[in-house]
Design a protein around this nucleic acid. Sequence first.
DNA 1: ACGCTAACGCACGCCGCTGTCCGCCTCGCT
DNA 2: AGCGAGGCGGACAGCGGCGTGCGTTAGCGT
Lengths: 221, 221
Amino acid sequence: MTDRLSHALRSDALDNRERILEAARAVFAVDGLDVPMREVARRAGVAPATLYRRFPTKEMLVTEAFAEQMYACRAVVDEGLADPDPWHGFCLVIEKMCELHARDRGFTAALISTFPKAVDFEARREYALRAVDELARRAKEAGRLRPDVVLDDVILVLMANSGIHATSPTTQVSASRRFAALAISAFQASPDASPLPPVARLASPASVTGHSQVGQASRPG
Amino acid sequence: MTDRLSHALRSDALDNRERILEAARAVFAVDGLDVPMREVARRAGVAPATLYRRFPTKEMLVTEAFAEQMYACRAVVDEGLADPDPWHGFCLVIEKMCELHARDRGFTAALISTFPKAVDFEARREYALRAVDELARRAKEAGRLRPDVVLDDVILVLMANSGIHATSPTTQVSASRRFAALAISAFQASPDASPLPPVARLASPASVTGHSQVGQASRPG
DNA sequence: ACGCTAACGCACGCCGCTGTCCGCCTCGCT
DNA sequence: AGCGAGGCGGACAGCGGCGTGCGTTAGCGT
């Protein structure tokens, strides 16, 4: 599909396109998605018109800019799924996802709430959620993940992680790492765990939330 | 100090002032702090000039609007401190704080990150942090709070809680409640708790963070 | 009741962001 | 090397929010 675009693009245009995307990624990562289009253009050393020609709407720019992040996202969940120890894989996913979002502020915004229309995002998102769901099922079967945890809880934690802000990128990832560890502590099966309040239905798709208990091992009672 | 202002205010001015604050609270709670000043004025049934006359800067408006929230905040920590069971008090503070922030999106923004100049906020904030610190110390002594938890972790959780967004207010508080429960699970002392990654130094004041271990019982080493 | 003065709101100018048009440039084909 | 189409960038108009000056209104004290 890249060819469909690039076959008609001249070399300088392609070059500019790449620089725009690079600049967009950089500035989105640091300042979030609310930066003006002109700022992206300025950092790319390009006039606004050029930017608008390549990416008529900000949504398109964002979608393209975070494509590789989406790949990273998929890679993380696949890595988690591949782990022989499901609990370890689950923890890995939590940690990596939190770090991913900590390193790129804009990606979180893009993924969580901002552009619901980007169908490509939706598909990948659902894939990731299904994978986490499966991982959680296995981790519960292994007795490491507490049984009353729900897929929405994972989303909850990811959303919460996006609320963490720090002054420096270093502090940001370190804070996020710490938070991920705390979240994992909360998810860990424990004999003296208090029951949780009713689940909050968030954005998990119906195809996954059909069963309210995430990765619930089919138990009769 | 209210008298110092109100003695010079005419009755209609005072009435408008109250309506402005009410409108500000309402809209800040739902939409956060990024709403235009004119929107507040519109909802209050007041011209922009009037709003600006009463509150020359948005910071002043926010400070006044959330004064009662700050009282509520203090009340929560005091209630927690007064609890004979420190762990129960600690949990109470976490829960109530999370709910407070869930119910009022703008308050979170105001408290956490936005207006560092509001000295009154700072003082109250520090007071609350000291109280939580003390509570944590006692809860650790009682063996209920895991010893490697740090005051910054509480801030971390509160910040994270602010990242939770939902479509309806009901879902919002329910999600936040669930999150608070998970956080408490993470904070709970447990024999099989994995060690935590290094703490992320956040915004806790030096007067409290002088000792890095929150509420650390004085141990030789 | 009357007037003084404070408060109100309309309307204005300013600024930053958005998105688009048009003349010049340059890449790429021959 | 020359030509043509596609690309580039400066410039422009529209919009929305911000903060303020000024004529008018209405509270409050006498």
